[in-house]
Design a protein around this nucleic acid. Sequence first.
DNA 1: ATAACATGGTTGACATGTCATCCTCAAGAG
DNA 2: CTCTTGAGGATGACATGTCAACCATGTTAT
Lengths: 147, 147
Amino acid sequence: MDKNELNEEELQIWNMWKGNFKRTFGRVVKEMSEHTGLSEGDFGILDRLVQFGDGKLRQQELADSMDWDKSRLSHHLTRMEKRGLVVRKPLTTERGVQVEITLAGQAALDEALPVVSSAIRKYFLSQLTPQDLESITALAERTKKQS
Amino acid sequence: MDKNELNEEELQIWNMWKGNFKRTFGRVVKEMSEHTGLSEGDFGILDRLVQFGDGKLRQQELADSMDWDKSRLSHHLTRMEKRGLVVRKPLTTERGVQVEITLAGQAALDEALPVVSSAIRKYFLSQLTPQDLESITALAERTKKQS
DNA sequence: ATAACATGGTTGACATGTCATCCTCAAGAG
DNA sequence: CTCTTGAGGATGACATGTCAACCATGTTAT
């Protein structure tokens, strides 16, 4: 048995797993962006601002919670600021930058939340069996611990 | 019960599923790109050229098999051609363009194949239980059939 | 034949991601 | 105090993705 190359079934599993994610995730993101004009990144940022910081967060904290590096976040915030979704203010107490959601940002988020929820239900949750739930949970645990 | 917003567990499932994919898939892609300089798109294109067309494919067929639109593929091929991985030639028999893998492209693919296989084993296949296999297969079937 | 339409591809503009580099400011080490 | 070091960000260059417009060439209807 060849240790290197994947056999047909192994390749199939990989391709099904990848294809399923891209299909489903793409549907959810597309439904949101078509209905609200927000991208996945936009939504993640706005959502964290209100969930974790009551509308404002330090830039570095935001980057950590998104699992983005500081450069990526900086670029994205620049674009979002230009669209009026957030503002950046220097911190007074310490070094760093405070990111705050604007009224327009809050409005966009409020509009997006139900769309996202229903899309996740329609394209993802509704397709899951109880077995799938177990599988997803356990697998996520396992890969999180990997090197 | 609120039909719109997701409850805590539903949100957890979505986030675990999404997080697991991005982590695992990212590890595989990163391992390949670090070892061979090929991106995910590069690899998919080169692999299909040899698997489905013995080294050459019509551009539109390639786009279909990648599930990419023609624009995306056109841009990507332009960059790959510049790096010497493929060449484009007008078809003589009919309208359209023939994409051919070059020697350099074949060499890059040969180098990448074992790296990709071992990365998929290490980060993905090795983490799967028999239950996971069933779950992945059945779920992929279900979502493929969705609207 | 010619007008309408579909197919196969390219292009430009812009959004998103990644990487390396640079800048500023703070905390310690000498 | 000066020198190094690291944290927090910004920036420029370039790769990747998306969308709409464009162009050329076949096909079909009238």
